[in-house]
């Protein structure tokens, strides 16, 4: 079955690199240990190339190209650190940081911001949260005086016991929509709605999740890069200042429910499971789980669960023991 892929010669920042035909520029970069920043890209999802933080300069191309999805071509000369690349990456990071709450984003984002000298403050003070982001008319907006920088800040949505959605932190990377849709769960409970700066992730008519097609697989949370989507357990612990990632262990094991054999990564703090994820690179389900694998662990906990006791109380008790 194995067909030897044709090798393609390209250069990356002047270094000659040989990669298989059909590889992306990102894969070629990674093959020589030159990772590129990515936000909307994930190994187990179809590239949507919307965040544009991974752009690189390809000789002869009028515009920069997204390395996550652009395929290599023979003789391609790629620059990953040119003035244009650095500028675009800086601006993308500034745009996101000035419009979105990145406090729970992957810490590597802050490193990139330092590296590219992104300064989100130069757009002015952040505009306050608004509560109408789900009902704005498409193609129209309120014209501001420009003194504050428009943001996506808005109240968090907490409509069920398992998830919370804080779209103040949403960078619209489309990953959750892909994971809910054809890339993994095929449930299609959420989609991108609206347009332009008012584009957002939404159920139909902004219905609560409990009134949507959601099956609570948590795969959207599993792929969210900013913490906009969070398990209630993590959210409540963070609110109670009891989330201590540095004290957590992560152990990979197999789900105790059906026969698919999904790999679970149990995040354990104080001998309690506080979060379940799944390795993206495992062939059984490529990082995706169902509601039972994702949430059905409470029965091995020593103390009560969210159904009856708020988790911050549960964990506070555990800590004082």
């Amino acid at each position: 079955m194995s067909v030897t892929a044709t090798a393609i010669q390209i250069t990356i920042d002047g270094r000659p690199v040989e990669v298989a035909a059909g590889s992306t520029i990102l894969e070629a970069c990674r093959s020589i240990g030159e990772d590129q920043p990515t936000l909307c890209y994930l190994e187990n999802l179809t590239p949507v190339n919307v965040c544009r933080v991974c752009v690189v300069e390809v000789e002869g191309s009028r515009t920069l190209v997204p390395s996550c999805s652009r395929l290599v071509e023979d003789g391609m000369a790629v620059a990953t650190d040119s003035v244009r690349v650095r500028h675009s990456r800086k601006m993308v990071l500034e745009f996101l940081a000035s419009s979105t709450d990145l406090t729970t984003a992957d810490p590597v984002v802050a490193e990139w911001m330092d590296h590219y000298e992104a300064d989100p403050d130069r757009y002015g003070p952040a505009a306050p949260p608004s509560d109408d982001r789900d009902s704005r008319a498409t193609g129209h907006h309120h014209v501001s005086d420009g003194l504050a920088a428009e943001t996506v800040y808005q109240p968090a949505k907490i409509d069920n016991t398992l998830y919370m959605r804080d779209y103040s932190k949403c960078i619209l990377c489309y990953k959750c929509v892909e994971a809910c849709g054809a890339d993994a769960q095929n449930t299609f409970a959420i989609a991108i709605a609206g347009r332009g700066f008012d584009a957002r992730v939404s159920t139909e008519f902004d219905e609560p999740l409990t009134n949507s097609a959601c099956v609570y697989c948590g795969n959207c949370i599993g792929v969210c890069p900013t913490g906009a989507l969070m398990f209630r357990s993590e959210y409540e612990l963070r609110r109670a200042d009891l989330w201590h990632e540095e004290d957590q262990t992560v152990t990979t094991t197999i789900c105790s429910y059906c026969g698919v054999g999904c790999n679970l990564e149990l995040h354990v703090q104080d001998n309690r499971i506080v979060k379940v994820t799944s390795p993206l690179d495992h062939s059984v389900t490529d990082g995706h789980l169902c509601i039972k694998g994702r949430f059905g662990y409470e029965y091995v906990q020593e103390l009560g669960d969210l159904a009856t006791t708020p988790i911050d109380i549960v964990l506070a008790e555990a800590r004082t023991k």
Partner: peptide
């Protein structure tokens, strides 16, 4: 339900 009864499912 002895296992799955341990968590609060919206479904």
């Amino acid at each position: 339900g002895v296992q799955s009864g341990g968590y609060h499912s919206p479904l």
